[in-house]
Amino acid sequence: MRDLDSADITEEVISAMAGTEDPRVAQILDSLVRHAHDFVREVGLTEEEWAKGVDFLTRTGQLCSPQRQEFILLSDVLGVTMLVDAINHRREGKATENSVQGPFFREDRPSRDTGDDISGGIPGAPLFFDGQVLDEDGEPVAGAAVDVWHSDGSGHYDVDVPGLTQPAMRGLFRTDAQGRFAFRSVRPASYPIPGDGTVGELMKATGRPLMRPAHIHLVIEAAGYQRVTTMLFPSDDLYLDQDPVFGVKQSLIADFATHAAGTGPHQQSTDEAYTAMQHTFVLDPLSRR
């Protein structure tokens, strides 16, 4: 291990890890070292650039907290999150496609009954959502757990609303015998990803926009079926083709239909203009994994 140069150091590093007992860990580390070293050689990385890279990663870690995960956001904007998802969740047939979970999921979300208002009193244009969960044969999936969360009409999640102490615009539902669930809330809006940290620096340096299209997050789980982590995007959103985290898929673009006050399917439930949407989710069996 002496007198190593740029040509032979890679094999020496890999050889030094030969005692790794877990074969999968050994495979990952082998590939990581080879790709990292090849990257350094390919771009001819300078000492100044290396130091800047270390500083960037250090500051990224320092920004992380229970409320903020800058490394996940970095993974998102580099397309790594969606790449991992694409490799691990190849849906077939009519099955609902996956998308990124994002940083705003909360374990302490309240359980809700179908039809509940989950807005938490947050002001905004009313939204009425009717969903159904089916299997690949079109049969309803009863008792499925459906997690829902989304932003308000200003693009803020409950964790970003000053003075709000209770969860809002989120809830855990169970589908009925027909696989149905429903809720009332406020229509979400597009919003920028955090631009005040290292990811913001990267986005600015590469001339990329911060705005995410509006969306509703859902996670659906049921015994015997593959878990689905997904989103629904309004078909009229201006940012569908420049999502900084690459989460938009054509099958996940939905009609967020706007109705004038006193018209449409929920005219008895509000005296305002509102959005009504319906969507069917199809689950893949575990046997197909």
Rank of each mutant, 00 (worst) to 15 (best):
R2P: 05
E11H: 12
E12L: 11
E12M: 14
I14H: 01
M17V: 09
A18V: 01
G19C: 07
V25N: 10
V25T: 14
L29W: 11
D30A: 09
S31K: 12
L32I: 09
L32T: 12
H35W: 07
G44W: 12
G44T: 12
L45C: 14
T46L: 09
W50A: 14
W50Y: 12
A51C: 08
G53S: 10
V54C: 14
V54S: 14
F56P: 08
T58Q: 12
C64E: 13
Q67K: 11
Q67I: 02
Q69F: 13
I72P: 01
T81F: 00
T81K: 01
M82H: 02
V84Q: 08
N88A: 12
E92P: 00
E92W: 01
K94N: 11
N98L: 13
S99D: 03
V100T: 15
G102K: 10
D108Y: 04
S111G: 06
T114E: 05
T114F: 02
G115M: 06
D116R: 01
I118C: 01
I118E: 02
I118Y: 04
G124S: 08
L127N: 03
L127D: 04
F129M: 09
F129D: 03
D130S: 13
L134P: 04
D135C: 05
D137Q: 11
G143E: 12
A145C: 07
V148K: 06
H150A: 08
D158S: 14
D160A: 14
V161C: 05
G163T: 02
R170D: 06
R170I: 02
L172V: 01
A177I: 00
A177Q: 01
Q178D: 15
F181E: 05
F183I: 04
V186R: 02
R187P: 00
P192N: 03
I193M: 13
G195T: 08
G195N: 02
T198D: 06
G200K: 06
E201K: 10
G207W: 12
R208T: 10
L210Q: 03
M211R: 06
R212V: 03
I216V: 14
H217L: 07
L218Y: 11
L218M: 15
I220G: 04
I220H: 10
E221N: 13
E221C: 08
A222E: 11
V228P: 03
T230V: 03
F233W: 08
P234L: 13
S235D: 15
D237E: 04
F246T: 08
F246N: 10
S251C: 11
I253K: 07
D255Q: 07
A257H: 14
H259C: 07
G262Y: 10
P265E: 14
T270P: 03
E272N: 15
E272Y: 02
A273R: 06
Y274H: 06
M277K: 03
V282A: 00
D284H: 00
L286I: 00
R289I: 00
